[in-house]
Design a binder for these strands. Sequence first.
DNA 1: TCTGGGGTCCTAGGACCC
DNA 2: TCTGGGGTCCTAGGACCC
Length: 422
Amino acid sequence: MIALIDANAFFCSVEKVFHPGLDGKPVCVTGSNDGIIVALTPEAKAVGLHRGDPVFKVRDIVEHNNVTIFSTNMYLYAAMSRRINSILRSCVQRVDQYSIDEAFTYLDGYEKYYNIEEYMRDVVNKIKLWTDVPVSVGIAQSKTLAKMSSKFAKNYKGYNGVCMIDTEAKRRKALELFNLSDVWGIGRQTFQKLNYYGIHSALELADKKESWIRSHFNKAMVQTWMELNGIPCIDTSEVKQKQTICTSRSFGDMVTELDSLKSSVASFAASCANKLRGQDSVSGSITVFICSNNFRTDLEQYSNGSTYTFLTPTSDTIEITKAAMSLLEAIYRIGIHYKKAGVILGDICTALPIQQNLFDEIKNRPQRRKLMSVVDNINQRYGLKSLCLGVEGLEKQSWHVKSDHRSGNYLSDINEILTIKI
DNA sequence: TCTGGGGTCCTAGGACCC
DNA sequence: TCTGGGGTCCTAGGACCC
């Protein structure tokens, strides 16, 4: 059997850990620029808020119902995620972390010694006791069924945090009750297509003939179909190395000047390069893109991107930033109000062994690599951007992202640890 | 005034080969 | 009148995930 451990309204739950008194109250976490709602508690859903709502459109609901708003604080959530994961790993042999708030575990063999439902309930309680974050567990023969089952565990108190689908009757019952559009792997397009073919429940989908699925859909759907029928076929084992690395932001205020754009794109490039070195990789190509605000129909729209291929794959911030600057200059158009820009590194491969290039213009690569590792060490010790390229700019820039309700880095910064007065 | 960010995988179609 | 057959590789874009 496979178990999925899923934190309930994870970002909100973490905020609640450090802001007592919010239990039972509506809480939301907003995305970058405090633009949209990215996470919300059931209480916030109950007053009419949804994931994805632009904050400015729901301001009335927020004020009327005293909804507490937090800006995303990924450092804090990642730190909490690590804690939960380590508890999990101390309880179960094999854990695949799937996202910041979800992990799959494999329980084969555990049934010989434990009642696995009770065993996982103990894990749920332990995580709650040690971190104060509520999690739900779904147990089933496949990951798609386990995911489904975890939603039942989350939505019905009677399960006490753990729902197990271990008989054919339970599987059919669950499929019958479950929202088709909530099935893992079925997005908006596929949902509509299924409706078009007269399929409206997960059970109807699972009961179709395999040949029919194969002739009307793609490989992904065949997998989903098999998983719904209890045949596991989705692999989530860890990806060692990212194939693309992207840093992009919407700006707090729109940007028109090339210099401001340069400062933003330079800092995105530096961030990408930093992530790249973090996984001991080099990148063979870089893309820079910029775009205007397509919600503003009154302004001229323009968006463009351009890609450069490195002669020698690199993770050097100076080299990557230089390339980013020329790409930006090539696509920049005067008179546009830019809302967003980004840098994508592609063709990523391991840093060693290095494929040398006869025509490489950088002759001192070993020294440059040492320089980068010094920069990384300093920034790790004294904080991001303690040391950066001048083109990134020193003062706070107009493109700077808004985040007015961010809580402290209680778990990762010694200066921001909570003080408790007794 | 104001509408997120970062990924993966699959597929169709183009360009090319003999 | 009539315009092949069988491949490979690459890429852009779509769909999905959190």
